[in-house]
Amino acid sequence: MDAQKDSEKSLDTRTDLELIAAMNRGDDRAFEALYVRYRDWATSLAYRFTGDESLALDVLQETFLYFLKKFPGFKLTAELKTFLYPAVKNLSIAARRKAERHQSTEGELAVLENHPVETSTTASADDLSVVVASLSEEHREVLLLRFVDGLNLGEIAEAMGIPLGTVKSRLHNALTTLRKDPRTKTFFG
């Protein structure tokens, strides 16, 4: 799929709900439009979980195949991102585990244990990444879903399958950590 074709599909002004209704009627062009709309987000998310481009692409494919198996008869009850998010996450975790099993040395395993978010060791250019990487996984996940993926608090709660209050507390704690850390407190003025 070339860039021109991508842009044509992204011009499809139908809402996600309309596209899904069309897919339920067997319209494969509606799927193409949704695929173009969410492909990069899903790939980026998969990369965030796996830390490996190749695994991220595998997850991308498996995610959309999983999505396709829901048709016909799929009903979207929330944002599509909140439906896709758990699929990407779970498939990423499975892909990571599978990859880990194939690693033969402890050194290689240690590399995979590192969090996928790139933790540059070079100087202060990526201080933020280092601090974010130091957060617990659950706090980091909420923080990134909110400010990188742009989900609101309710959508995060639905995507992660946790109560809204838990989302708020995790986000609050994550921001507090960033506010207090000398490497990132400058963001807060």
Binding site: R39, D40, T43, S44, A46, Y47, R48, E53, A56, L57, L60, V117, E118, D126, L128, S129, V132, L143, L144, F147, V148, F187
Partner: peptide
Amino acid sequence: ALKASARRKVFV
């Protein structure tokens, strides 16, 4: 900054 650091464009 979070977006810039966490979002990585993966070529499909």
